[in-house]
């Protein structure tokens, strides 16, 4: 028997698929997904800055894309991902300091994280439209 056969015959440890999804677990995954989304979202920031450095004509062209309905929708999602990931990061800081591991505390933290990210995102966009 080759080594590969021994490997394939080994029993597998249970992975996340067999567990009932609970809020803390889902939010852990969402934290990673928002991080990955923000990673690719930086292309929009770099493009915007480089457009501004390229001159008024090209900047107006990029501004128009960002200002379109689809552009705004993506930027709204970007804002939420950013706020959500930051609040999630603060949740991790609280855990790093040794607090918030109790059943009630961790449940409260994820709820505050989700509710906070939605409220702050909407507030930021209201402020954005109000100051223009």
């Amino acid at each position: 028997m080759s080594n590969a056969d021994i490997k394939s015959n080994r029993p597998l440890s249970p992975h996340i698929q067999i567990f009932k999804p609970i809020l803390t677990m889902v939010m852990s995954i969402v934290h990673r997904i928002t991080g990955a989304a923000l990673y690719f979202g930086t292309v929009l920031v770099a493009w915007w800055l480089i457009a501004a450095a390229s001159g008024p004509a090209y900047f107006d062209f990029v501004n128009e894309i960002y200002g379109s309905f689809l552009g705004r929708l993506i930027l709204f999602g970007f804002t939420w991902a950013l706020v959500h990931h930051m609040l999630g990061g603060i949740r991790h800081f609280i855990w790093d300091m040794g607090y918030g591991f109790g059943p009630q505390a961790r449940e409260w933290l994820v709820r505050a994280n989700l509710a906070g990210s939605i409220v702050i995102t909407i507030l930021l966009w209201i402020i954005g439209y109000a100051v223009r």
């Binding site: 900047f59 991790h92 800081f93 790093d96």
Partner: peptide, 29 residues
């Protein structure tokens, strides 16, 4: 974690800057 601490402050500045300059012309930005 160190860059995360820096990001809390810097991204807060960034968001305020974006809100202040959104819709601005090229000259204003």
């Amino acid at each position: 974690r160190l860059s995360a601490v820096a990001n809390v402050f810097l991204i807060t500045f960034f968001v305020i800057f974006i809100i202040a300059t959104q819709g601005a012309s090229h000259a204003e930005l």
